[in-house]
Design a protein around this nucleic acid. Structure first.
Length: 563
RNA sequence: GUUCCCGUGGCGAAAUAGGAUAUCGCAAUCGCCUCCUAAGCGAUAGGCUGUGGGUUCGAUUCCCGCCGGGAACGCCA
């Protein structure tokens, strides 16, 4: 890969060192300005001259060569035109040489990243509120893997808490095994809701629930068995969703797993003198850091969320020795993460700095917040089913002879759903709307997939041309340049996505690439009378297809060859 | 009340760790399939980037105030 910035920096005779120079060199806002630009404004102060004058002087002194073919001073910018055919071929050949793995690197070699994502709750339905953590976490998993990191995907199950005592009471009173097996989480959910309806009028239920929860903790066989049953029913159902989304985990150690692993961390915090008594509870005071205290032990002696998260973080550090541990959890829990990260830092865990809360925005419905208890939820399964069914209808209409029709519809529908959680900055709130998620036009996964299929179609239909070499002058035009430059920025986008924990960096670039390709496609016929031109253009198509596919893979979205 | 986040054309967003004329999609109107997939492409219309200051050669981007929206703030997770 030719480093034009470096070439320019080496040849520029400005009173700054090479590193500063190349840091200042940027890509131009518009191809008509050139390809790279050096803003002279910072030099103005040092050199005591106007930026316009500096640019002109630098331009006059700059000696062009085979790589940098033209220099222009415009409004205080020094604009460089590179050898565009060289740039084009440089990028295209890199992509082709990468054989489908363009953008991969070994920057993470020997490093481990833990990613805590999706983390479903037992006995609760999987609704669209869980889509963001699942899609973002899974995409980060793939992105970090592509960068050579060893990645550990963790589904930190919500499988501990007094609600399971309630579930047992409800199940014994109103439920039965056969129905639960048949109806799955829906039935568990119904029992849970019923418990809350009955509880105000039957205070003894609360007491029974507490008792059953205590029995789970003691390892009472009946309680344990029922609890495992709920867990099995929930996971069975959730796993069918994960299968459809192609989401994988390396660990399913949830809250209950850490139940017997909290004593040591607590003792450690006590030994360090961090824990104090407050209103009967044991807390770590964080007033010095502008935060309310972090509660670790309730006045009845039982543990809390933060206690388990601290134990889990320590356990993960010991077992995986991570270089980074990401928590893909909604921003509602900002304070919680800040608190327990700080507690670990105060405890002298220098690795506390490697814990990252990857926060994302809330999903709400058009008529307000979702509520499991009120039954006001949109199930993810229903959304996927609708999307797939719509994809099916469109295929029936546009491409009825397509092979593997249902498979393609599945990939398109699922892709559309996943993309909705990956297209924007994760911090943005989302108001769920069927209209939006079922729209397959414009900036959507089906658009990317369609563009990929278009590329593929050309590659397949192009007649073989033996003994002819490509004429790359066929690539000397605005549409190709724009497309190729975008493709060339893909590796950096992958790194940025990892650095910022932001898969949307990749989604946004893919949209730009697809758009640039479609404009290229309209403007320049690939399969044409001139075999030399055809060969050159086919390589652009090949590279586009390759990058679109790789990008979609990193987002966890399928790329059917035809649609 | 305190802390944090968000505020860009009717709607949804982008702007590479301050840079050149604020970019894209949806919706709207009008065009383009005897020609590589029209899930596409083009054109028109739509903006004082919430607001008032400040820093800077330059602010959507950084700082302060205000307004509007959201979230969190002790025995849930």
């Amino acid at each position: 890969m030719i480093d034009y910035k470096q070439i320019i920096a080496d040849k520029l005779s400005a009173p700054l060192d090479k590193a500063e120079l190349s840091a200042l060199i940027t890509e131009t806002a518009d191809d008509s300005f050139g390809d790279y630009a050096f803003p002279c404004f910072k030099l103005a102060r040092v050199m005591r001259k106007s930026p316009v004058q500096i640019a002109e002087e630098l331009a006059a002194k700059f000696v062009t060569d085979d790589h940098i073919v033209k220099v222009q001073a415009v409004n205080g910018y020094l604009n460089f035109f590179v050898n565009r055919l060289e740039l084009t071929w440089d990028i295209i050949s890199d992509v082709i040489a990468a054989r489908g793995r363009y953008g991969d690197s070994d920057m993470g070699k020997g490093k481990t990243v833990c990613i805590d994502y999706s983390s479903v709750n037992i006995c609760k339905s999987f609704h669209i509120g869980h889509l963001s953590t699942t899609a973002i976490g899974s995409a980060l998993y793939k992105i970090y893997s592509a960068l050579g990191y060893n990645v550990v995907g963790i589904n930190h199950l919500g499988d501990y808490g007094t609600q399971f005592g309630k579930m047992i009471v409800a199940f014994k009173l109103w439920g039965d095994q056969a129905t639960a097996e048949k109806e799955g989480v829906k039935e568990l959910q119904r029992l849970y809701v019923k418990f809350h309806q009955e509880e105000p009028n039957h205070p003894e239920l609360t007491e029974q629930a507490r008792e059953w929860f205590a029995r789970i903790e003691r390892g009472d066989p009946e309680a344990q068995q029922l609890f495992e049953f709920f867990k099995r029913v929930t996971l069975q159902e959730v796993k069918t969703i994960y299968d459809r989304l192609h989401v994988r985990f390396d660990s399913w150690n949830g809250e209950s797993f850490f139940n017997d692993k909290m004593a040591e961390p607590l003792q450690m915090l006590r030994d360090k003198g961090l824990i104090t008594e407050s209103q009967g509870a044991q807390v770590v005071e964080l007033g010095d850091y502008g935060m309310p205290p972090c509660l670790l032990v309730k006045s009845d002696g039982s543990s809390l969320y933060a206690t388990r998260d601290i134990a889990a973080a320590i356990w993960r550090k010991q077992h995986y020795n991570f270089d980074k541990c990401l928590y893909v959890v909604a921003y509602q829990q900002n304070l919680h993460f800040k608190q327990f990260f700080k507690v670990l830092e105060l405890a002298g865990c220098d690795w506390a700095k490697d814990l990252v809360h990857v926060a994302y925005g809330m999903v709400s419905l058009e008529d307000g917040a979702m509520s499991t208890r009120k039954g006001n939820v949109v199930l993810l399964k229903d959304v996927i089913d609708k999307a797939v069914s719509k994809a099916n209808d469109i295929i029936a209409d546009k491409n009825p002879d397509l092979d593997n029709r249902s498979d393609v519809a599945e990939q398109v529908g699922v892709g559309a759903v996943l993309f909705s959680a990956l297209e924007n900055s994760r911090i943005k709130d989302i108001v769920f709307s069927y209209d939006r998620i079922l729209n397959f036009d414009g900036e959507t996964a089906p658009y990317l997939q369609y563009t990929y299929a278009r590329c593929n179609s050309i590659l397949q239909k192009a007649p073989r041309t033996e003994g002819v070499s490509g004429d790359y002058r066929a690539l000397d035009n605005a549409e190709t340049l724009r497309l190729v430059k975008l493709i060339g920025s893909f590796p950096q986008a992958v790194r940025d996505a990892a650095l910022k924990y932001e898969p949307s960096v990749i989604s946004a670039l893919l949209i730009d690439i697809a758009q640039a390709f479609n404009r290229f496609y309209i403007a320049h016929r690939v399969i044409c009378d001139n075999p030399a031109h055809q060969i050159a253009r086919l390589q652009v198509v090949d590279a586009t297809a390759s990058v679109l596919k790789r990008g979609l893979q990193l987002l966890g979205i399928g790329a059917p060859p035809q649609m």
